[in-house]
Computed example of a mutant assay.
Amino acid sequence: MHAFYASIPVRAEGCAQCAPLEDLTVFTATGADALTFLHGQLTQDVTGLPADAARLAGYCTAKGRLLATLVMWRGAAADSDDAPQFYGMVRQDLSQALVKRLSMFVLRAKVKLAAVPLHVAGVQATPEQAAALEAAAGALPRAVWQRTDLPSGTWIAAPSADERLRWWWIASDAQLEQSAALAQTLGLASAEHWQAADLAAGIPWIGAATQDVFIPQTVNLDLIQGVSFTKGCYPGQEVVARSHYRGTVKRRMAFGTIADASLQGPALAGVDVFDAAQPGEAIGRVVQAANDQGVVSVLFETTLAALPEGDLRLSAVDGPRIAAAPLPYSITPD
């Protein structure tokens, strides 16, 4: 962890909270063909993305199953092909394999992909706390998925399940070292605290344990601007488009909590979900979980039929109960 984060005092109230996110990492794509290459690989409209925005995207197998989800944004316009044209933020546990796999398909395109030494943190504030934060950092983006580049780094407005404002803050060593004044406006929070808020907002992060398991729709990627159905081909596009246009999506990702402080969030990814009212095969699988102060937040993929009346259980029909709760967006057909 960078020394900057160690300089942030631990204070739970009265100021914006900053959580170092060492489970996330950033890669770049440079070269004249970087954007067009990735446009043909990801579920998102890469070339049509506004310069001041970020978006979710997925990278799929030919069968439409997700190998990764990422937050992506375009680099600043530059005269040199050596300048990054694209940034992608992904789970650290799959980043090396993802970059290697994408690089296999570059062929003759003028593009180079590589991990970069940028630090990712999550910053969360009430509207009142945001004023002090902006006095130190500069004007921050307020609209969800809006992006701003400041001397302190790149700030991306993240979705939230409540009135709190949330940002991903991506910064270099030099930018953190020049942000001493900003540290005094922050309180140090745990990664689990930020991750629990991510889950409540319905943001799916595919990790190594859940690769090649879900199609984009079953983790709601299409409901949160993570899939373009007009951009053209990419690996798995036929499967994703068929499910969309035929209206055959019968499984979605839901949110819930588990009152069991002994559970470790990272270890739950990929664990089966059961309905105690219908003993038999599993009805779903955990996408991601986080244990924040003894309450386990969990995103899980399941059948729409199991919601909201199912007696949902983790790992077995008599396992810990999952108390389903609404996401900030609808997962059921209108």
Rank of each mutant, 00 (worst) to 15 (best):
P204A: 15
Q217P: 01
G265Q: 11
Q217G: 08
T210P: 08
L268K: 08
T210F: 05
M253A: 11
D311M: 08
A261R: 15
L312D: 00
Y234H: 09
F229E: 11
D222F: 08
N220E: 06
P320M: 04
G247C: 14
G207L: 08
G319R: 05
A277G: 14
D311E: 14
L268C: 07
I283H: 00
I206T: 00
V296C: 09
I203V: 12
A267T: 14
L314P: 05
G202Y: 07
A201G: 00
A276R: 13
V271W: 10
V213S: 06
R313H: 12
P235E: 12
A306H: 00
A269H: 06
G265I: 03
V227Q: 11
D260H: 10
L314F: 10
Q225M: 01
T218L: 04
A277R: 14
F274Y: 10
P308W: 07
K231F: 02
P204K: 12
N291E: 12
E281D: 13
R313T: 06
G294Y: 02
L304Q: 10
A277I: 11
V296I: 12
E238N: 09
P216N: 01
V213I: 09
G284C: 07
G310V: 05
I203E: 04
S228W: 15
S297M: 08
L314E: 07
G265S: 09
V296D: 02
R246A: 10
L307E: 15
L263T: 05
A277V: 15
D292V: 15
F274N: 04
L263P: 08
P320Q: 07
K231H: 07
Q225C: 06
Q225K: 09
G247E: 13
G226M: 05
L314Q: 06
Q264G: 14
C233T: 15
A241G: 02
R251V: 01
A289K: 03
A261V: 15
I224Q: 08
V295K: 13
L307Q: 15
A259P: 04
F300W: 00
R321L: 00
Y234P: 05
F274G: 11
Q278K: 12
G202V: 10
Q288H: 11
Q211N: 08
A267P: 09
L263G: 11
R242P: 00
D212Y: 02
K231Q: 10
P266S: 13
A200F: 06
D292M: 13
I203C: 02
V249T: 14
I224N: 03
A201N: 00
